[in-house]
Structure formats: structure tokens, C-alpha cells
Write a protein that binds this DNA or RNA. Structure first.
Lengths: 225, 225
DNA sequence: CCAAATATAGGACGATTGAACTATTTTATT
DNA sequence: AATAAAATAGTTCAATCGTCCTATATTTGG
């Protein structure tokens, strides 16, 4: 099922029981991180949630840092897997696939887990370099599909312009999380917000031209800030 | 200078020294929260940063919860003040003011403090009801100006549609923080991203019509998800 | 089935945490 | 100057933290 290389202590996880245990540990850690935040995530709480002792947990993960590293890989791998399957189910035309991705992202960020996990990840990335790397790696992979579709919808854009438009769309969608996410004040408006997002992003990708984004040359001439 | 009602222990802060001390405490706490995150924010670290003892800190804030409550008020009040002055400096036409606000928000979220504080606030809001209330109150106030300008630019929008468009724009801008913020991978592209944002949001507010956002009636007929 | 590797339990360590308490010093007002 | 309120220092407490160590139980491969 999962084929990524985990970073637990070498030697551990070779028995079936150990592999299952690692999975239990990561699932439990993810649940605590989502429910209580990073400040509420401790080795003892993880061990208790799994039903093992701290000594046993420490056998798999000698330090909390090791566990967090594996946890981020585990969660991010799950999202990438989810993202790929969603892409496969998309429509035929580039525009349909583009809209399907927006729909998928919005639907996903309104789930309990995603709503609560990602703000934690963003905060973590501000103080943990490793978390930052994992986060940006996740988003970079997630933008590959978006950028590809943008290129099909609007072939006039340069590579850099396409990447910047893709980043803007991706980041904008992520920004909806604390507002329309699970249990958030605007969660009941998610259907309308989604329509606004689709119209806005489709128009953006369709209509935007080179002149709208200053090149490095014209940027030197007229800095608009 | 600051006129908001703080929530420190009654009786404290009546002397000038006490008022200055409270300000020092909140500034120090904000700095630690920004630099180390909430998990790295402790009463002792705050006291040490201020140069007082834990006992003295507890005299002002009997519990960490009380301090956090005051801290959020303090920081949010600062942002609202900053936002109001920025609005006063904006141009004459509604469209110019709209663009000025976008410029201000993007410039602000690329500062070190804002880049690091708000993700912490979003994560905090997921696990602390009081933090959630403060956060949404801040954004609600910040959207007042945006919504007002949207109404001037596009008077055809209903109240609800205007609010939803305003929320989408505000949330989208916030979402840029973990990507183009201070020290983030796309920080060097902030000028171009800003142009994309301005074009996208101006087009959205100018062009959007009632039909683009389904009313409660048509929503029942055709759910597009 | 047996030996080596793996998994688990349980306790202990020092450090840190939020909180509480008392005694002393400083401030502002009369 | 006197006095009441406010501010500060210093200590202690129980709980929790990450980490480490040792002994025992379990699993797997030959």
C-alpha cells in the first residue's frame, strides 16, 4: 500500500508487527496534531493513543524530531496520492480538468482533517526548516498538474508567468481554509465561494497576457509600488 | 496611544510603571510567538525577555490563558490601526483605493512579523475558541473597507454576493503568506504575484454578475458538485 | 525448534512547564 | 512624611516533557 521510505530507526519495522506499529504511531500522531496542535503533541500522548509504552515508542523513534519528520512524510504522501487519483477522475478538456481540480481542492480543504492540519503545517514551516522543505515540496508537486493545465488553456504564457499564475491560484485556494474550512464561519457559503473561485481563476487563466505581468525589463522601468 | 481595554488582572496597570510593564510583556510575548511559535511560548521565556521574574509576570497575568487573550487583542488592535491609516492614504477613486488596499495587504504579509504571526494565529484558532473569535473579528473588520469598495465598483451585487466576493479576495490574499511571505521561496516574485492579484481581483469585482453566484433558489435546482 | 533479531514494558533521569505563595520594595496620594 | 496600593523578587509545588537504560517477551528465519 505505502511504498515510501520511512525514516524510523534502522532495524525497526522489519517484522509485520513493527510495520503495523509504525503505521499506528503515525496515524495517532496525526490525529493528535490535528486535534490538539503541535503544542499538544507529546511522545507520551502518542504512546497512550496507540496503546504502547513510551519505551516502545522511543524504540521506533529515538527522538520527537525523527517522529515529526516521518509524520510529515506520511501525511504529505497521503495527500499526493489523493491528488493523483482525483486528477485521473477529471474530465476530458483542459478547462474541465482545471475546474475539477479547483472543486477537489475546495472539497478537500473543507474536511476536518485538512482544515486543521494545514494551518499547523504552515506554522510549523515557519520554525522548522525540515517542515518547510516538506511543505513546499508538497505544494510544488501539487502545482505540477495546475501549471500543466494552465499551459494548455493559455499557451501564450511564458514558463515563469505560468508558474506565478499557478502559485497564485494554489495559494489563494489554500487561503480559504481558515475561513470556509470545516467548522469555520463561512463554511455554509462554500458552494458560492467555490463558484466565485472557479469563475475568477478561469477568467484569470483565460484572459491574462504578458503585459499584465511585468517582465524583468519593464519592471525596472516602472515599479508600481 | 493605546486605548483598548486590556484584560490583565484588575488592579494591575494603574501605575505608569505597571502600564509600561504590560506593554513590555505583550511585546516580548509577541516576539517569542513569532520567532518560536506557540509551542515555544512559555511564561518563563516571556519573563526573561522582559527582564522580570515569573512571580512578577503572574502578578499581571495569573494564567497563560489570560496573557494569550491580551496578546491577541494587542496584536490585532495594532493591525486594525495600521489598516485604518493605510486606508486614509489611499487614492480618490474606488478602484484606486481597492488597488491600494491590495498593495498594502501584500506588502504587509511579506514582513517578517506578519508572515510568522498569522499562520500561528490560524493554527491557534483551530484549537482555541477565544483565538478563533478574535481572528474572525479582525478579518471581519478588515473586510469592511473591502466590501465597501466592492459595492462602489460593482453596485449590481447583492449584499450576500458582495460579502462572499470580499471574503474570497481577503482569504486569497492571506493564502499568499506561506508562499510569498518573508523568507519564503516565492518572496522574490512578490512584485509579479501582486500584479496578478490586482488584475485578477479587479476583473472579478468589475465583471462578476448575479448569475455567476447561484442564488439560494437556483442552488437547489442545480448543485454543481 | 532454536537462536538471533525484533518488539515491548517499566522505570528513572534531569529539565521545563504553569501555577501558587509569601515577603519585600517601590509608587502615588493625602 | 505617612500610608495604602501596586510592583517585584524569590521560592516551592506537582505535573509533564524528551530521553535514556535495562530486562523481558515475542517474532522470524535457518
Amino acid at each position: 500500500m505505502r511504498s515510501i521510505k520511512l525514516q524510523n530507526r534502522p532495524g525497526t519495522g522489519t517484522y509485520i508487527k513493527g510495520q503495523e506499529r509504525i503505521e499506528q504511531i503515525l496515524v495517532a500522531a496525526q490525529g493528535i496534531l490535528i486535534d490538539k496542535g503541535y503544542s499538544g503533541l507529546s511522545m507520551r500522548k502518542i504512546a497512550t493513543a496507540v496503546g504502547i509504552t513510551i519505551g516502545n515508542l522511543h524504540y521506533y523513534y529515538p527522538s520527537k524530531k525523527d517522529l515529526l519528520s516521518d509524520l510529515l512524510d506520511h501525511v504529505i504522501e497521503g495527500y499526493l496520492l489523493e491528488f493523483n487519483t482525483a486528477r485521473a477522475e477529471a474530465g476530458s478538456s483542459a478547462l474541465d480538468q482545471f475546474i475539477a481540480i479547483i472543486n477537489f481542492i475546495v472539497d478537500d480543504l473543507t474536511t476536518h482533517d485538512t482544515t486543521n492540519f494545514f494551518p499547523e503545517l504552515w506554522a510549523l514551516a515557519n520554525h522548522d526548516e525540515q517542515a518547510a522543505e516538506r511543505m513546499h515540496e508538497l505544494y510544488r508537486k501539487a502545482r505540477l498538474d495546475i501549471n500543466d493545465l494552465i499551459a494548455q488553456i493559455n499557451p501564450t504564457l511564458s514558463h515563469q508567468q505560468r508558474e506565478e499564475v499557478g502559485l497564485f491560484i494554489s495559494a489563494s485556494l489554500e487561503g480559504l481554509t481558515p475561513f470556509i474550512g470545516n467548522g469555520k464561519p463561512w463554511n455554509s457559503n462554500v458552494a458560492n465561494i467555490k463558484r466565485i473561485a472557479i469563475k475568477s481563476f478561469v477568467d484569470l487563466v483565460t484572459d491574462i497576457r504578458d503585459e499584465d505581468i511585468a517582465s524583468s525589463k519593464s519592471e525596472l522601468i516602472a515599479a508600481c509600488d
